[in-house]
Simulated scan of single mutants.
Amino acid sequence: MMKKQPKLTVVGAGPGDTDLITLKAIKVLKQADVVLYDALVNPKLLNFVNPLAELIFVGKRKGCYRYQQEQINELIVQRGLTHGHVVRLKGGDPFIFGRGAEEMQYAAAHELEVAVVPGISSSLAVPAYQNIPLTKRGSAESFWVITGTTKEHQLSNDVALAAKSNATVVILMGMGKLAEIVRLFQREGKDTLPVAIIQNGTTPEEKIGVGTVNTITTIVQKKGLSNPAIIVLGSVVSHRQELLQLQREITLKAVV
């Protein structure tokens, strides 16, 4: 039997809703010989995988590290050499805080063919599902997407820079640093800036808390919000409430 060409395809699984994976991603899953998937990947997506493929759960969520990154890198190369086409299935988009680029670089250095299938990033889709636009004419001309925790386990210095701007700020993996984030925005006089925190976005388990910089920590405690969650700071958060109010008024008129 002819040996298969060792290959890695890094695939974005989207933010959680199974309908938000791309057609190209599904096609690649059907061609896989091995699939390494993360904790943030909706397990229902595994139904699209080639039934003959080997499935390997590799964790990769805070408090859920079944494999360290170095072990994952080695596993990709080992399975590629022995099995052929390895698909690395990651939540969201693999190039937005997904370490997809690192895995591709490692695989390429070990003579594997590499490719990527972009995914819909949770940083964009999760706010959108809650009717929060990251840009809106007259409210926000740009947005920042920032990791809440760097590889040194510190809050990114970019959060302090973003707090000085008028842009919408989206922080991933930042719940453990929420108090620090709040202090940075308070320091810039943005006590009343709207904030939304969305947990398990785009899934049936989705929960949301909406408040201001001054009130959000209390709301998080009251609602029991925790990881995985996305923090959105900016005037665009108010768009959600405005839409809800309009919908309520339309409903009331229909009843009358």
Rank of each mutant, 00 (worst) to 15 (best):
K4N: 09
Q5V: 12
G12E: 05
G14C: 03
P15S: 09
T18G: 00
D19G: 14
L23H: 06
K24Q: 12
V28N: 06
V28G: 06
A32W: 07
K44V: 05
L46D: 12
L46N: 08
F48W: 14
R61F: 14
K62S: 15
Y67S: 06
N73V: 09
E74H: 14
Q78P: 00
R79V: 02
G84H: 11
V86I: 14
R88P: 05
P94L: 12
P94T: 12
E103K: 00
Y106V: 03
A107P: 08
A107F: 09
A108P: 00
V114W: 02
A115I: 11
P118K: 09
G119L: 11
S123Q: 12
V126W: 09
V126N: 06
V126M: 04
Y129G: 05
N131K: 05
G138N: 09
G138I: 10
A140F: 05
W144Q: 01
Q154L: 13
V159F: 05
S165C: 02
G174E: 04
G174K: 06
M175H: 02
G176K: 05
A179D: 12
R183I: 02
L184G: 03
F185Y: 14
E188N: 03
G201F: 03
T203M: 00
T203N: 00
K207P: 01
V213M: 03
N214Y: 00
T218Y: 06
Q221D: 14
K222R: 14
S226A: 14
N227S: 15
P228M: 13
I230Q: 01
I230N: 01
V236T: 15
S238W: 00
H239R: 00
Q241S: 13
L243Y: 05
Q245Y: 09
Q247K: 11
E249S: 09
T251P: 00
K253V: 02
